[in-house]
């Protein structure tokens, strides 16, 4: 677990009153399977939320709904003032403001690292190529792998690939970042480098929603932990209280399993 995350600089981690994401009475079904049940979440700007729960609890589906990789059938999701409906314009708007990092990185294997980073800015934001490349190099510096810019994803280690994926999202200058189990597919020695990148992102004041089982990360960075089970929010609290004083039995069971006692 990321014990090194003790020296987190919380000076810029301020939560504003502005609402970034508002989810109201949201329900989703896969066929007849009720996968998300009556979800209500309000995320303010600057919040760092960790979502956890047993597998199949719907946590990945939840954040995938936030940029409409999954469709919800009931309720409302408003991201940065834009409601997600079947309106393609709204979907485009939301997607270009919300960055997402996947469990399996999903870098484009046919493009170099630099091309991976500049693809969306050039085609979506209409940024001149040179400028896009400069931005890309800036973020590659930030994730500490500028020297890999001209290699292909297949030539990088898993941890490096995931950091590239984070940089790729950042190049779109998103206001919100979603992380879908970003460290689950990584070897243990690579988890720390990715978590460090995410921590430095939090230190810069990014609004983040992170599905993860890295409890060290949750304690160090999150201002709220949401525990989900059976497609519903079972408990939420600030991290210290959540870990030290869990309320519901399901949370206690889950924590005892994940903390390995």
């Amino acid at each position: 677990m990321a014990e090194a995350a003790t020296a987190v600089n919380r000076s810029k981690m301020t939560v504003s009153d502005e609402v970034a994401i508002q989810i109201t009475d949201m329900n989703k079904w896969y066929g007849t399977f009720h996968v998300l049940r009556d979800i209500n979440i309000t995320v303010n700007k600057g919040e760092r939320i960790v979502v956890c729960g047993p597998s199949g609890s719907g946590k990945s589906t939840l954040i995938r709904c936030i940029n409409r990789l999954e469709e919800h059938q009931q309720g409302q999701i408003i991201v940065d003032g834009t409601e997600l409906t079947s309106d393609l314009k709204n979907i485009d708007k939301v997607r270009s403001e919300v960055g997402m990092v996947f469990q399996h990185f999903n870098l484009f294997p046919h493009l170099t690292i630099l091309e991976n980073l500049t693809l969306a800015p050039i085609w979506v934001r209409k940024v001149p190529k040179k400028e896009a490349e400069e931005t890309a190099m800036y973020f590659l510096q930030k994730v500490k792998i500028p020297e890999q810019a001209h290699k292909y994803p297949g030539q990088l280690s898993g941890g490096q690939q995931q950091r590239v994926a984070i940089a790729r999202s950042l190049c779109m200058k998103p206001r919100i970042m979603l992380f879908d189990e970003p460290t689950s597919a990584l070897d243990p020695e690579m988890i720390k480098e990715v978590l460090d990148t995410m921590i430095s992102l939090a230190e810069d004041g990014m609004t983040m929603i992170c599905v993860t089982h890295e409890m060290g990360f949750a304690q160090a960075v999150a201002n709220r932990v949401i525990f989900m089970d059976q497609g519903q929010i079972v408990e939420q609290n600030e991290p210290r209280e959540f870990f030290n004083n869990p309320q519901s039995d399901r949370t206690k069971l889950f924590l005892s399993q994940i903390l390995g006692h």
């Binding site: 049940r37 059976q230 519903q232 939420q236």
Partner: peptide, 19 residues
């Protein structure tokens, strides 16, 4: 931030327009 669910929501059938 504290929120604890006391009773779990049972699965519901999808709205009729979905099935």
């Amino acid at each position: 931030p504290l929120y604890v669910r006391t009773t779990m929501i049972p699965p519901k059938n999808p709205p009729s327009s979905q099935v």
